[in-house]
Design a protein around this nucleic acid. Structure first.
Lengths: 210, 210
DNA sequence: GCACAATTGGGTACTTCTACGGAGGTGCGT
DNA sequence: ACGCACCTCCGTAGAAGTACCCAATTGTGC
C-alpha cells in the first residue's frame, strides 16, 4: 500500500479551547495535517473555498452562521469536501439534518481520542460515521425524532401552544375549529404526559419546536 | 522572590475533548501541574478530598452532579481549595450563584489561552476573576440578571409556573393564598408581557429559571 | 413620621383549558 | 373489503387562568 497523502483538515468551532483540544489530540495521529481553523460558519465556508481541505470538522452551535447552515452553503457552492459534524448535543433533529445534508458523520464532543481518529479516517474517505453513543437513538430511525410519537399535526399544534398562542388563535391560523385544537392538545398531553400549557411548552423546547 | 511550588490543578469537565484542550494549553505554562481529572461533580468532590488540589477548574453543565452543586458539596465538607468555574454559558444566574458560593472566578469556554492562564494565577492565589466578556453584564450588578425587574418572589413564582405547577400547588408550597399567587402572576405578566402560561414559560427559560 | 415598594389577600366576571364522553371522513396498507 | 391511524368536530362539566377593581401589612429609605 502506498503511503497516502496526508488528510488536509479544517477545524471549525467557536471555542478556541475546543480547537486546541482537537489539535492536541490530532498531533499524535499520523497522516493528518491541520491546515486551518475557523470560528463560525461564515468563515468556514470561505476557508473551504480558499483552502480546499479534504475534510472539515464542523461544530453546529456557533454564532454568525451555524454548522448546518454552513453545510448547506458549502453544498450550494459545489465545494467538494467531506464534512464531519461535531456537536455537544445528541439532539436527534441535528443528527437527522446532518444526515439529510449528506455529511460524512456526526460526532459528540465526548468522543474518545481513538473514536475521533477512527471517525476522521472514515469521513475523510467519504464514508459515514456516527458516535457510538448516538447510533442507538437512530436505530429507531424513521419518525423517532421525538420519543412521544406525535403526529405532524400534533407537533404543529404543540409548537403553536409553546409560542403562547391560544387555542382560538391556533384554530384560526390552521382554519380548523377550536374543538379540534382541543382534541389535538388533549392527545398531545396524553402522549407526552405534559400536563398544562407550561409543561407542554417545556416539552416543545425539548423537541426543538421553539 | 522564591520560586513557588507549582499550582496543583484538578480539571473537571464531562468532555474528554475539553479536558485535552485545557491540558494542551496548560502544558506550555510554567508553575502548573495537572494532578487529576474528573468528569462529573461527584468524582470531582471525591478527588478534591483525595488529592487536595490547590485549584479546581470546574465545568458547570455535567451529568451526575453539576459543577455548582459540587461546589456546595466541597464547601459543606470544608475541603480547602480554590475553585475556578468554567462554562459554555454566560447565563448570569450561573455567574451569580458562582459568586454567591464563594468561588474564585468564572471563565467562559471561549477564553483565550492567555486569559485562561491569567485567571488561573489569580484564582490559585485566592483572588477572583471573571471573563472579560462577562464583566460587562455584571456591571449592572445587583438585580439586573433579568431585564424585567422582577422581584425575588416573582422570579420564584415564575420558576414554579414554568415547572408546570398550578397556582394552587404553588400557593401550597409557598404557604400563601392562591389569590396572592395570582397577584404575583399578574404582576409578572405585566412586567414581562408574557401573556399566558406558555409565554411565561418561554420567558422563564430565557432567564434560566428552568 | 412619611413615601414607597413588596408582599399579602380579596371580589367579580369572563375566558380558557382540561377531562370525560361521543362521531364521521379520509387515506393507506393488507 | 377491512382495519387502522389520522384528522376533523361536538357536548358537558368543572377546574384553572385572566382582567379588572380593591386594601392591609411589612420593611426600607428619606
Amino acid at each position: 500500500m502506498l503511503p497516502e497523502a496526508p488528510v488536509r483538515l479544517l477545524i471549525v468551532d467557536d471555542h478556541e479551547l475546543v480547537r486546541d483540544g482537537i489539535r492536541a489530540r490530532l498531533e499524535s495521529e499520523q497522516g493528518l495535517e491541520i491546515i486551518g481553523e475557523a470560528e463560525n460558519g461564515r468563515q468556514a465556508v470561505s476557508l473551504v473555498e480558499q483552502l480546499q481541505p479534504d475534510l472539515v470538522m464542523l461544530d453546529i452551535n456557533m454564532p454568525e452562521m451555524n454548522g448546518l447552515d454552513a453545510v448547506e452553503e458549502i453544498r450550494d457552492r459545489d465545494l467538494p469536501c467531506n464534512i464531519l459534524m461535531l456537536s455537544l448535543y445528541d439532539n436527534s433533529e441535528y443528527v437527522r439534518r446532518a444526515i439529510d445534508l449528506g455529511t460524512n458523520g456526526y460526532l459528540l464532543k465526548d468522543v474518545s481520542q481513538s473514536e475521533m481518529a477512527k471517525a476522521i479516517k472514515i469521513a475523510a474517505k467519504g464514508g459515514f460515521y456516527v458516535s457510538e453513543s448516538l447510533s442507538h437513538s437512530l436505530a429507531d430511525e424513521d419518525g423517532a425524532n421525538d420519543p412521544y410519537n406525535l403526529t405532524d399535526r400534533e407537533r404543529e399544534i404543540l409548537a403553536a401552544i409553546a409560542a403562547g398562542k391560544l387555542n382560538k388563535q391556533i384554530a384560526g391560523e390552521l382554519d380548523i375549529s377550536v374543538r379540534t385544537v382541543e382534541s389535538h392538545r388533549s392527545a398531545i398531553r396524553q402522549k407526552t404526559g405534559g400536563g398544562n400549557a407550561a409543561g407542554l411548552t417545556r416539552i416543545a423546547a425539548e423537541l426543538g419546536l421553539t
